[in-house]
Write a protein that binds this DNA or RNA. Sequence first.
DNA 1: GCCGTTTTCGGCCCGACTGTTTTCAGTCG
Length: 574
Amino acid sequence: MENADVAEVFYEVADLLDLQDVSFKPVAYRRAARNIESLDEDITKLVDEGRVRDIPGVGEAIADKVEELVRTGRLGYLEKLRSQVPPGLVELLRVPDVGPKTARVLHSELGISSLEELKQAVGAHRLRGLKGFGEKTEERILQGIAALEAKGQRTLLGEALPIAEAYLEYLKSAKSLDRISIAGSLRRGRETVGDIDIVVGDDEPAAIMDAFVSYPEVQDVLMKGPTRSSVRLRGGLQVDLRAVETRSWGAALCYLTGSKEHNVYMRRVGVEMGLKLNEYGLFERASGKMVAGKTEEELYEALGFGYIEPELRENSGEFDASKKGALPELVKPGDIKGDFHVHTDWSDGANSIPDVARAASDRGYEFVAVTDHSQSLKIAGGLSPEKLRQQISEIRKLESASKLGIRVLAGTEVDIKADGSLDFPPSLLKDLDIVIGSVHSRFKMEKAEMTKRVVRAVESGQMDILGHPTGRLIGERAAYQLDMQQVLQAARSSGVLMEINSFPNRLDLGDIHCRMAKEAGVRVAIGTDSHHVEHMGYMRLGVITARRGWLERGDVLNTSRVGDLLRTLKGRRP
DNA sequence: GCCGTTTTCGGCCCGACTGTTTTCAGTCG
């Protein structure tokens, strides 16, 4: 049973308790679920070692339930709760503006217990007769259902970021503002986001709201007030704007960046110091006097912490690290000196080698690695050994004619075959500057078999980087079964690096695995997996992911000068 | 249900917006 499965059960428990109007327990179950979800160890391992209670938010009662769940695959408590709540009520909670109270009334008064029944009841205007329900509520619920059906899922970081940046540019051009920033999970760099949050700090905060709701991409205005407004864009993405006076800028930005758990912790620390923290600032509880809030830096300082980077704000150790002066100095986009993973028109890429070199040079890089596919991957035009030989000499020729203005590394993304052998002979691989080994076939292997396959490749002595190590496609395909700890141990002893594949729907390694890699003493290499020079801009997504994984400059091979880099790589392979 | 220089009980973050309200509950973030 995976961590995510255990978390999902507890989320459902929380919903079911909410529907029974139970207080506080839902919060506790959700907290436990979130912490289990973001754990960097297998929950089964923790159960085996009796360490479940070490997880924050997991006490005696939840620990027992985790153990039951992991050992038997079932949870009696969940089954009991399910029998007490009409099936289908939980799905009503997914409709915006329908919470537990509304769902209960809908069921008790109108007998509604599914999304379908709710839709019919709204269509027949049966809600407006109920106490506390009117026409507007009916309309909102109808819109909520439509939005849920149209979208319902999270948006990739790489899709949301440009949309948010365009919106920001528009707002800045509409009115001169003291401060404006993206906030929320997007600012924290989560791999997917539910919505876009924007914060404005200005001495006339309410004045931006008209411009905000008039953005041409807006389809619906969900709410509009002097400090807060909310819209839905064409395409379904929701955008929230919060505007405060400049003196509250830092407090509002911090509050809206979250995470929720991070905020709750900060508030508790404030309470212990006799202070009150909200989106307007940090205040003395007794006098109401403002202590901090104009900038995030002064806010953290006033609470006794150093500045915590947005990507770390998940309440997963950042406060402890700050107290100990052990916060990482995160790798920055400007540290990146090259891209390790680019395809060209020799296999399934769109651009020529000189085009790729030029694009890399335009980005200010010192190097770029050409890593086309290998022979087995026919669908992607994988190169034969002869063709790869030709490509190598082509690259060397261009280099010696110094026509490229940048160091182009001759490389490959070689298939790791089902038995763990590589798709090119060692005699060919040794002539390359860089070898990425990737799994592109037989995804459904058993965990033990897949782990053996990958470990064998990692230990072959012919590979520098393990490409997209889990194989997941966000929202499309689950990771293949793999014992990541074993792979990391093998990588450490063989000196192989883990890739952070920056393609928007991969981000593989993800943040949690990056942190695991660091703890295991394994460095990472960031590659964009570009199939078009435009894709080379995805590098920033990889950097954000590295930052969420607490990685510093020294943990990321891309930050090396090209000379050092080549010595590192050559020194490793026989 | 969890947690603790407010510690084994009594708390649990705090505020905006909406709709249906004659003063506030519900939802959301």
